[in-house]
Amino acid sequence: MIRLADDLELLRGFPPYAFNVYLMGGVLVDAGPRQAVRRILRQLQGRTIHAHALTHAHPDHQGASRAVCETFGVPLWCSEADAEAAETEGLIMARMPPHWLSRAVGPYWTGPPYPVARRLREGDEVGGFRVIETPGHTAGHISFWRESDRTLVLGDVVSNIHIYTGLPMLREPERFFSLDPMENRRSAKRLAELEPRLIAFGHGPPLRNPRKFAAFAARLSV
Rank of each mutant, 00 (worst) to 15 (best):
G25Q: 01
E80G: 02
R47P: 00
G32I: 03
G73K: 02
M96L: 12
G73D: 04
R95A: 09
M24K: 00
P33G: 03
S65Q: 12
V105M: 08
W100Y: 04
V37R: 06
M96V: 15
R66G: 02
G90I: 15
I49G: 05
G46F: 01
A36S: 14
R34S: 13
E70S: 07
T88G: 10
P98E: 14
Q43P: 00
H52Q: 01
L44W: 08
V68F: 03
D30Q: 03
G106P: 06
H56V: 08
W109G: 04
V68W: 03
I40A: 02
L76F: 06
G46K: 12
C69M: 05
Q43N: 02
A53E: 01
S65E: 06
A104G: 10
L76I: 11
H61V: 13
C78D: 08
G73R: 10
G46D: 03
W77D: 00
A57Y: 05
D60R: 13
H61D: 03
R47M: 04
P75N: 15
H99T: 02
I92R: 02
C78Y: 13
H50E: 09
R42N: 11
R47G: 09
A51R: 05
E70N: 05
I49D: 05
V74I: 15
P59S: 13
R42Q: 08
L101I: 07
G46V: 10
G26T: 04
L91Y: 13
G32K: 06
G63M: 02
A81I: 09
Q62C: 11
R39I: 08
V27D: 01
Q45C: 01
D82P: 01
G26Y: 11
A104D: 03
L28N: 00
R42K: 12
A81Y: 08
L44M: 07
R42D: 15
S65L: 10
L101W: 12
Y108V: 12
E84I: 11
L41R: 05
Q62F: 15
V27S: 09
W100P: 13
S102T: 15
R34Y: 09
C69A: 07
A83C: 08
M24H: 00
L91D: 04
C78G: 05
E89H: 09
T88I: 02
A83G: 03
A81W: 14
H50Y: 10
E89N: 11
A36P: 01
A57E: 11
R103P: 04
Q43Y: 09
S102G: 15
G111M: 07
Q43D: 00
L91T: 11
A53V: 01
V105Y: 13
I92S: 05
H99N: 15
Q35S: 14
A86G: 14
T71H: 15
G111H: 04
